[in-house]
Amino acid sequence: MDALELVINRRSQPRLTAPAPAGEALHNIKRAALRAPDHAALKPWRFIVCEGKGLDKLGALFEQSAIDNDKTEREIQRAPQLPTRAPMIIVITTAYQEHEKVPQVEQFASASCAAMAMQMAAVAQGFQGMWRTGDYAHCNIVKEGLGVSADNEIVGFLYLGTPAQDAGPKPELEPQDYFTVFA
Rank of each mutant, 00 (worst) to 15 (best):
D2A: 12
M88Y: 06
R11D: 00
S110F: 06
C50P: 02
P21S: 08
M88C: 02
G145L: 06
P169W: 01
E63Y: 00
G59Q: 12
R46F: 01
A183L: 10
G59V: 06
V7A: 02
V105N: 08
A115E: 03
P169V: 10
A117Q: 14
A164V: 04
M118V: 12
N9S: 15
E100G: 10
G129F: 14
I141R: 10
R10A: 01
R46I: 00
Y178H: 15
A86F: 03
A66M: 06
A20F: 08
D38M: 12
T180I: 12
E5A: 14
A115Q: 11
T162D: 11
A137R: 09
P175V: 11
I90D: 07
F179M: 13
I89K: 11
V181K: 11
Q13D: 12
Q125F: 04
A79K: 02
E5V: 02
L16R: 04
A25M: 07
I90K: 04
Q165S: 14
G156W: 08
A40S: 13
A33S: 09
T180Q: 14
M130L: 15
I8Q: 13
G126V: 10
K57H: 12
A111L: 13
E144M: 05
M118Y: 11
D166L: 10
H39I: 09
A167D: 05
L42R: 06
V105C: 09
E106V: 14
G52L: 07
L34N: 01
G145A: 07
L42Q: 07
T84P: 00
E153S: 14
D151M: 05
A95C: 08
H138Y: 15
C113R: 11
K101F: 05
W131T: 08
P44D: 12
P87T: 08
E63G: 04
L58M: 04
R35F: 02
G23A: 09
A33H: 08
A115K: 11
E63D: 08
P44I: 05
